[in-house]
Structures are given as structure tokens and as C-alpha cells.
Simulated scan of single mutants.
Amino acid sequence: MTAAPADLADLIVDRPDVSDGAALWRLAKESGNLDLNSSYSYLLWCRDFAATSAVARDEDGEPVGFVTGYLRPDRPGTLLVWQVAVDAGHRGRGLAARLLDALVERIADERTVLCVETTITPGNTASERLFASFAERHGARVEREVLFDREQFPDGPHDPEVLYRIGPLAATSHSR
């Protein structure tokens, strides 16, 4: 779905639900730069990780962007952002940043969020810019290190995944 450009104010950001799974899969597929997971995984994600994910909806309620994430079990103050995707007709206007900020704010209303982590493959400048600007808006440092090198991927050639650790975040705990 490529929509006509709409004002970001017309979009609603909320939690995904299972009925959004197919749309999230489609957005990931059409992004052209995300590793596409099975459609089943997007359905499960919308069921099991809705509290740590966000979806942007257009005026018809259709998903036009999403952020999926989870709180790391061994570091419950760390939100790992798994994927970010925005429909082609809504790109370039700050929707990904709005989704990311809204998600962190929503989670921080319930618990302390100290850090955001994500992985980015080298050369993905859109993601690099998104997370650098997120760090700047939240007064946080960015640390980078290779998390998974290309040899670790069993299913063929894959660029390394560089871990971006962003934190500590300013004023993002439920005790604000």
C-alpha cells in the first residue's frame, strides 16, 4: 500500500493487535531493507509483544508504520528495538521517529527505561540517522559494537549486525 502523503497529525500511534500482523509483515516486506520474518512471527509478535511495540494508523485505521521491540529479560530496563518500517507513502516526514518516541514514552509510563538497543547493518543510513537523532533528542550516548559477525549467520551471506546501545535516557522512567 502506498498512500498519498498525509499530515502526521492525522495518524494515530497505538499498540498493535493480532489483526495487524499481516499488515506489519507486508510493511516489512515492502521496506526493501529489513530481514523478512515469517508471517506467523508477525502475528505472534502482535499478540505477545504488543506492549513493547507500536503501530501508526492512517485515518482508515490501516497500519502505515510500526516499531517492534521487547524488554531484554536479562536487562529489563533495556528496550531492544527489533524492526522499524514505514509505508513508502509516509516516509521522510519523521514518522519512524514519532513511533520510536511514542513507544519509549508509553513503556516509560509503566516502568523504567534506561537504554534502547537495536542492531543496524553497515550502510543502512536511514536507520543510523533515526537512532542518532533519537539519542540526541533523549540526551543519550550511542555505543556501537558488532553483535553478530557475518560468519555467525547460518543461512548464507549476511552483513554484520552492529549493536547500537543508546543510553542512559534522560527523563524516561515511570517515576518522572
Results as ranks from 00 to 15, higher is better:
residue 26 R to H: 08
residue 58 D to F: 02
residue 56 A to Q: 00
residue 68 T to S: 15
residue 55 V to M: 03
residue 2 T to A: 12
residue 154 P to Y: 01
residue 68 T to W: 02
residue 47 R to S: 13
residue 57 R to W: 06
residue 25 W to D: 11
residue 64 V to S: 00
residue 150 R to P: 04
residue 56 A to H: 00
residue 168 P to I: 01
residue 6 A to H: 07
residue 89 G to A: 07
residue 39 S to N: 14
residue 159 D to G: 14
residue 13 V to M: 04
residue 94 G to P: 12
residue 102 A to G: 12
residue 155 D to M: 03
residue 174 H to Y: 02
residue 77 G to M: 02
residue 169 L to R: 02
residue 105 E to F: 06
residue 96 A to V: 08
residue 55 V to W: 03
residue 24 L to G: 11
residue 61 G to E: 11
residue 53 S to N: 06
residue 83 Q to K: 07
residue 18 V to G: 10
residue 128 E to P: 09
residue 40 Y to T: 09
residue 5 P to V: 07
residue 114 L to C: 15
residue 164 Y to C: 05
residue 31 S to E: 06
residue 117 E to Y: 12
residue 95 L to E: 04
residue 73 P to A: 05
residue 38 S to Q: 04
residue 2 T to R: 15
residue 44 L to W: 13
residue 173 S to P: 01
residue 74 D to N: 12
residue 86 V to R: 05
residue 63 P to T: 06
residue 171 A to E: 07
residue 170 A to C: 07
residue 67 V to Y: 01
residue 155 D to A: 12
residue 28 A to P: 07
residue 86 V to G: 03
residue 79 L to Q: 02
residue 4 A to H: 13
residue 69 G to W: 01
residue 37 N to K: 15
residue 141 R to I: 10
residue 26 R to E: 10
residue 58 D to V: 00
residue 132 A to S: 13
residue 118 T to S: 14
residue 52 T to A: 00
residue 56 A to M: 02
residue 4 A to G: 11
residue 23 A to Y: 11
residue 126 A to F: 07
residue 33 N to E: 14
residue 144 R to G: 10
residue 31 S to W: 06
residue 36 L to C: 01
residue 117 E to I: 07
residue 176 R to H: 10
residue 18 V to I: 10
